[in-house]
Design a protein around this nucleic acid. Structure first.
Lengths: 231, 231
DNA sequence: ACAAAAGTGTTCGCTTTACACCCATGT
DNA sequence: ACATGGGTGTAAAGCGAACACTTTTGT
């Protein structure tokens, strides 16, 4: 029981990744107000009274960037650095999201002066402890890619197989064996061939594939380990 | 920017597991005050101003149960049920810990009228959403046992191999192959033989083993996957 | 001598990996 | 015809799973 009323504020932050042209991007905003005005930072802000954490992240994302994500999960709660935010003692619940950048128009409003996709490899130095949060989110993305089909959130609903390959090798940061990768995905039944083809300039046209969600759900329930490592 | 001052309170909860006599236990307290007086619940409480989350859990655990854990990690932050606590809008950061029950004397004070180890299989119905939290923590424990050497936190520093085997099969809820398990642990170098022996009543005396931390750290850095499934 | 727990190797099958050539199209 | 990217199979090695008897002690 606190004698003194609790002064701690609850905030949310979102690390949203996008993928395009074999590049991994992260969504950042430029602060409009405060001591850290004009610094780049993760979208986020304080939770409103009676608001859930989940709706708070989604609201802040929408307000500050115009983006709504196709995938968003809780990442970690930062509250061990009491000086993190110079203004007050803040506990920040961070989220990790995925979206196709081209499916969204950026519309910064509210606390955000600007909103932009940065290549993860060329992002600016961020305010607060946001560099660390981005790093943790990236690790989570890499780890999760191995055992959950989250990569599909970053692609259109149908895609040539090479897109999926490139996505994996880009995010994991190393080459993967095309034949083994395709074999695994197809025999597991996670990915399904459609009867459409695309021709992208030169080269043989590619079949289009799609994620087979019901098959995946079945695998997951049966406890199968996906194990998409593929050295 | 909140126009109305934020009223949300930040709390911490701890799910502490113990292991003894081939049984998995969870540490609970009986509430002394409030609407949920006399209900069993997880140890925890509100974070103090300027206090870190980590020290808040440790403090509450110590106050309410007398226990300090050898292992404690953040589990999940619950803040999507605004009605969770009837008194106020509370965001609760939950932690998951391990300890050897016999190494600790229970000394309930403060908000706790009583503190007790319950067999996980026979725990009472808990206050708030604590049943769900315990369930999530148990899942995390089971999953993590496969790829991190956290089981050793539940054993003395030296132990007969059968203790380790029993711990795994108890927590995972199925038998494991003694020979394969021992082989894996020894060839990975996670576990090391000492030159001591113990005789426990009848049967052949057992060698004592210990966790080889430096070896494990090396494995972890080299990115080796432990993979301690062992159907 | 017998009951109880500890200790120990080998075989088989499957999964993972490594690897290179032909195919369909645009220019 | 050639350049570009798409599509495909097989063999070898390594790993995980299954499995039962001997040893040491207490009673």
């Amino acid at each position: 029981m606190a004698q003194v009323p609790q002064q701690i504020k609850v905030a949310v932050d979102a690390v949203v990744f996008g993928y395009e042209n074999q590049q991994l991007f992260v969504l950042l905003i430029k602060q409009r107000y405060g001591q850290l005005k004009d610094r780049w930072a993760l979208p986020g802000g304080f939770v409103l009274n009676k608001e859930t954490l989940k709706s708070a992240v989604n609201r802040e994302l929408k307000e500050e960037t115009g983006v709504s994500t196709s995938y968003l999960e809780q990442l970690y709660t930062f509250g061990d650095d009491v000086e993190r935010d110079p203004r007050a003692h803040v506990v920040s619940v961070s989220y990790f999201g995925l979206v196709r950048p081209s499916s969204m128009r950026l519309r910064p409003t509210g606390d955000a002066k600007d909103a932009k996709w940065f290549k993860l490899s060329h992002k600016p130095d961020l305010a607060f402890d946001h560099n660390k949060i981005v790093q943790i989110a990236h690790q989570r993305l890499q780890a999760k890619l191995h055992y959950r089909p989250i990569g599909f959130q970053l692609l259109k609903s149908t895609f040539p197989f090479s897109d999926l390959e490139n996505l994996y090798s880009t995010i994991l940061g190393h080459d993967i064996d095309r034949r083994n990768f395709r074999k695994r995905m197809l025999t597991l039944g996670i990915v399904e061939e459609t009867d459409k083809k695309v021709s992208i300039g030169r080269g043989r046209p590619a079949n289009l594939f799609k994620f087979n969600k019901s098959n995946y759900t079945r695998l997951e329930k049966s406890g199968t380990i996906l194990n998409l490592y593929l050295a």
